[in-house]
C-alpha cells in the first residue's frame, strides 16, 4: 500500500517536473554558466576550476531549490496537500517528492558533467568520477532542500524565506561538492572522504525526515 502510494506520487511529480518545460529552463541556465566560463578565458580573464565548480553548484542549488519549492508549495496552493496528508503518511510524501527532485537534478547534473568533460578537454577516464560526484551531490541537495521545502510549505511561511533557511544547512554539502568537483577538474586525486561526508549528511537528513516529519501532523 505504502509502496504503491509512493510510486503514484513519484510518477505524478516526475511528470510535473519533466513536462513543465522546467528541464529546458535549467539546462539553459547551466549552458549560460558554461559559456561564460569558456568565454572569459577567451577574453584573457582567467577562470579557475574553483570558480567554475562554484558557479555550477550554485546554479544546481538554485535549480534544486526552485524545483523543491514548486513541488511542495504547489500542493499547498492548490489545496491538495491536506487531502494528500490524510491519505498518505508524511514520510511517504517526503520520500516521493525528494526522489522526484533528486532524479530531476541528477538528470541535469549528468548533462553538466558531460559538457564539462568536453569543454575542459578532460580525459574520458574522469567521467565516471564526475558522474558519481554529480549524482551523489544531487541526491544530498535534493534530500536536504526537500525537507526544508516541506517545513516552509507546511508552515505556510513566506516563500522568500526558503533560500535563507536552506542555504546555511546546505553550505557544508556545497563546500564539499565544490572542493571535490575542483579536484576532478584539476585532474588531481579526489578526496573520497568528502564524498562520504556528502552522502552521510544526505542519509542523516533523510532518516531525520522519515523519523520526525510524522510528528508535525500529531495534535494539529
Amino acid at each position: 500500500m505504502l509502496w504503491s502510494n509512493f510510486k503514484t506520487l513519484l510518477v505524478k511529480d516526475i511528470k510535473l517536473l519533466f513536462k513543465g518545460g522546467m528541464l529546458i529552463g535549467y539546462a539553459f541556465g547551466i549552458v549560460v554558466v558554461m559559456c561564460i566560463s569558456v568565454a572569459l578565458p577567451m577574453s584573457k580573464i582567467s577562470v579557475s576550476e574553483v570558480t567554475v565548480s562554484t558557479l555550477i553548484w550554485m546554479v544546481l542549488f538554485f535549480s534544486c531549490s526552485e524545483v523543491s519549492q514548486r513541488i511542495f508549495l504547489d500542493e499547498e496552493t492548490k489545496k491538495t496537500a491536506d487531502l494528500m496528508r490524510q491519505l498518505v503518511p508524511p514520510s511517504v510524501i517526503y520520500l516521493s517528492k525528494v526522489s522526484a527532485n533528486s532524479i530531476f537534478i541528477s538528470v541535469i547534473s549528468l548533462g553538466v558533467s558531460t559538457l564539462l568533460v568536453f569543454w575542459f578537454k578532460l580525459s574520458l577516464t574522469v567521467l565516471p568520477v564526475l558522474f558519481l560526484v554529480m549524482v551523489f551531490g544531487s541526491f544530498a541537495l535534493g534530500i536536504t532542500q526537500g525537507i526544508i521545502s516541506y517545513l516552509v510549505a507546511r508552515g505556510a511561511a513566506r516563500g522568500s524565506v526558503f533560500p535563507i533557511v536552506a542555504l546555511p544547512i546546505i553550505l557544508p554539502v556545497l563546500i564539499s561538492l565544490i572542493n571535490i568537483t575542483t579536484q576532478v577538474l584539476e585532474s588531481s586525486p579526489v578526496s573520497f572522504t568528502l564524498l562520504v561526508v556528502v552522502l552521510a549528511q544526505g542519509f542523516a537528513v533523510l532518516i531525520t525526515g522519515i523519523l520526525f516529519l510524522p510528528y508535525l501532523e500529531k495534535g494539529v
Binding site: 525537507i147 526544508i148 517545513l151 546555511p168 537528513v205 531525520t208 520526525f212
Partner: peptide
C-alpha cells in the same frame, strides 16, 4: 514549535 523543532534537529546534523 513543531516546524522549528524539526529544523533545529536538521540544523544540528551539520
Amino acid at each position: 514549535p513543531r516546524i522549528a523543532a524539526v529544523y533545529s534537529i536538521i540544523a544540528f546534523l551539520t
